[in-house]
């Protein structure tokens, strides 16, 4: 296999919880706790999981928008875990991010033209026909009209704002974009437009995406490979089709079974695994396998031994003592 574009190994991000001067019981929230992941050039890797599983933090940490507690991040074969600010600024040309709520990341006092021109100036990118022409070109690439140049963010709808966010990320012609829940706040018809746009851009430029979302069907639709996270750890990862057709981890199974299908007959006929209980606190995760407290197949060993994240079949990795057999999952 060729060298991946991005490789993270044993990534950890722990947040200390605030404690007073005299309080002794300080603890850390292990938001990301040993994630290893590879993203090849031009592919889309989905990070999926429920709130508090650490998927967004993982996305941010691998771009070094957050400083990792430990672990190693390599971009294009080069270790970027410890590079300094100036180097990091240069790296931003290669790696960009888009967010769930683009409005809060767009300066309300600036016109769209100014917002989109900023990356050119900051990164010193030369535009052969001038920055203005380049910005107009960006606008039309994301499906906005060049006339939108002089408008302000509040004049746009949610879907259009997300397009502006995408245009801004594209301005520097990055090779990787981390998309953090980019369609979660949008209505379905708008969501479909944004997903199509992201796919069109990928087909055109060969950009790679890390697509962070909680919606399994959206993640499956857009991703080549998917990693399922729970309490800061990757439980399972495989190609999209493999993962959705032959899930090995009980948590993946439960997630898939919980996502309602927009098809009444299928939805009512299928067997559902309803997980009991709530997510444990990430500052005090269960011993052994972090999923065991809600796992329908948990045994004694699950509390004692942390299951290794291992390759079960080619390209299909899972961290479980009792991965479900193909016959069982079918």
């Amino acid at each position: 296999m060729t060298e991946p574009l991005l490789r993270v190994t044993g990534l950890r991000k722990h947040f200390p919880t605030k404690g007073g001067l005299l309080s002794r019981n300080r603890s850390v929230v292990k938001a990301v706790d040993g994630v290893s992941l590879e993203v090849a050039g031009g592919e889309t890797v989905g990070l999926v999981g429920e709130s508090g599983c650490g998927k967004s933090t993982t996305g941010r940490t691998m771009l070094r928008a957050l400083e990792p507690t430990s672990g190693r991040i390599e971009f294009d074969g080069r270790d970027i875990t410890g590079v300094g600010r100036e180097e990091l600024r240069k790296l931003r040309r290669e790696m960009q991010m888009i967010f769930q709520d683009p409005f809060s990341s767009l300066n309300p006092r600036h016109t769209v033209g100014t917002i989109l021109a900023a990356p050119f100036e900051i990164q010193g990118i030369k535009a052969p026909n001038g920055v203005k022409a380049a910005v107009r070109d960006l606008l039309s690439r994301v499906g906005l009209s060049p006339e939108h140049y002089n408008r302000y963010p509040h004049e746009f709808s949610g879907g259009q704002r997300q397009r502006i966010g995408i245009a801004r990320a594209l301005a520097v012609q990055p090779r990787l974009i981390v998309c953090d829940e980019p369609v979660s706040a949008l209505d379905v018809s708008i969501q479909a437009e944004i997903i199509n746009l992201l796919q069109d851009i990928q087909a055109e430029t060969g950009i790679a995406y890390v697509f962070v979302a909680h919606d399994l069907s959206v993640v499956r639709h857009i991703s080549d490979r998917v990693a399922v996270m729970y309490l800061g750890k990757v439980m399972e990862s495989a190609t999209s089709d493999e993962l959705y057709e032959r899930p090995l981890h009980p948590y993946t199974n439960a997630l898939l079974s919980a996502a309602p299908l927009p098809d009444p007959v299928q939805q009512r006929a299928r067997e559902k695994i309803v997980l009991q209980g709530d997510l444990p606190s990430p500052s005090d995760p269960p011993s052994g396998c972090v999923f065991r407290t809600r796992c329908p197949m948990a045994q004694q060993v699950c509390a004692e031994v942390t299951p290794a994240y291992a390759e079960h079949s080619p390209g299909h990795w899972v961290a479980c003592h009792f991965p479900e057999d193909e016959q069982l999952a079918a």
Partner: peptide, 11 residues
Amino acid sequence: LDVTVQAQILE
């Protein structure tokens, strides 16, 4: 709600 919790509530 999260999808697994949604499933609980719908049930």
